[in-house]
């Protein structure tokens, strides 16, 4: 299969996502520079990596939304292509409207980098099929603006459609206030769109996909993607 990793000016987890896709998963992988308008059709999955696209100036993701590649990502997603946005990638997906809600400043108003526990709310996506439902995984966060907010109707819809994929939890799977690092409503750490082909998440699975880093809990996301592409259901 073939992964494409989008590179905006200021992306800085592009190398990390490329490394996991190419060297850990052993799949063909390209960087895709944001300026051209390359067709994304030849890709089986597009990754929008973390970082500080356009320096996070104005608001994270707000400028990347107007970059030429973003129209192509929209087209690709609307056509059913798999898109995963991690951290700044999630913020960009929200700004483009591919995912609902907003990501506000963390409750502490500080950047937070630490391991957190997540409860996998749904394994019914192309990105999470290798997890079991209600599995608790440890994946690090590293962001200043990950405080998920949406109006009541949106939240209701997300719940009804089973679009909430990851929630911050304790090691025992309690989605409590204490387990919430940034103030997100319903402890939301990741959501997908209605068609379930676009996933946005604040935690960084690419940072915990190899034994040498002491944690491989994030690898199953990439394994799920590869499995879905190689053995379409």
């Amino acid at each position: 299969m073939k992964f494409g990793v989008i590179v905006f000016p200021g992306s800085n987890c592009d190398h990390d996502c490329y490394h996991v896709a190419k060297h850990v998963m052993g799949q063909e992988t390209d960087y895709i520079w944001h300026k051209g308008r390359p067709s994304l059709e030849s890709y089986d999955c597009v990754i929008i990596p973390g970082g500080f696209s356009y320096g996070d100036y104005l608001r994270p993701g707000a400028i990347a939304r107007y970059s030429p590649i973003t129209d192509e990502i929209k087209k690709y997603a609307e056509g059913g292509g798999l898109v995963i946005g991690i951290c700044n990638g999630f913020q960009i997906l929200i700004e483009t409207g591919l995912l609902p809600g907003v990501l506000m400043r963390n409750r502490s108003l500080k950047f937070i980098c630490e391991d957190v526990y997540l409860k996998v709310e749904s394994s019914d996506t192309p990105f999470t099929s290798e997890y079991s439902a209600d599995e608790v995984v440890k994946i690090p966060i590293a962001h200043h603006d990950g405080n998920y907010f949406a109006d009541m109707d949106t939240l209701k819809k997300l719940k009804q459609n089973n679009q909430i994929i990851f929630r911050y939890s304790t090691a025992d799977g309690e989605t409590s206030v204490e387990a919430n690092p940034n103030g997100s409503l319903l402890n939301i750490a990741g959501i997908c769109n209605e068609k379930r082909n676009v996933l946005g998440m604040m935690p960084h699975p690419e940072r915990c996909a190899e034994g040498i880093l002491g944690n491989e809990d994030g690898k199953k996301i990439f394994e799920s993607i590869v499995k879905r592409v190689m053995q379409p259901c």
Binding site: N12, D16, C113, A142, E210
Partner: peptide, 14 residues
Amino acid sequence: IYNQYDHMVRTDTV
């Protein structure tokens, strides 16, 4: 202090 620093980006921090 160090929780405010991204200490994991580049996925090399052992």
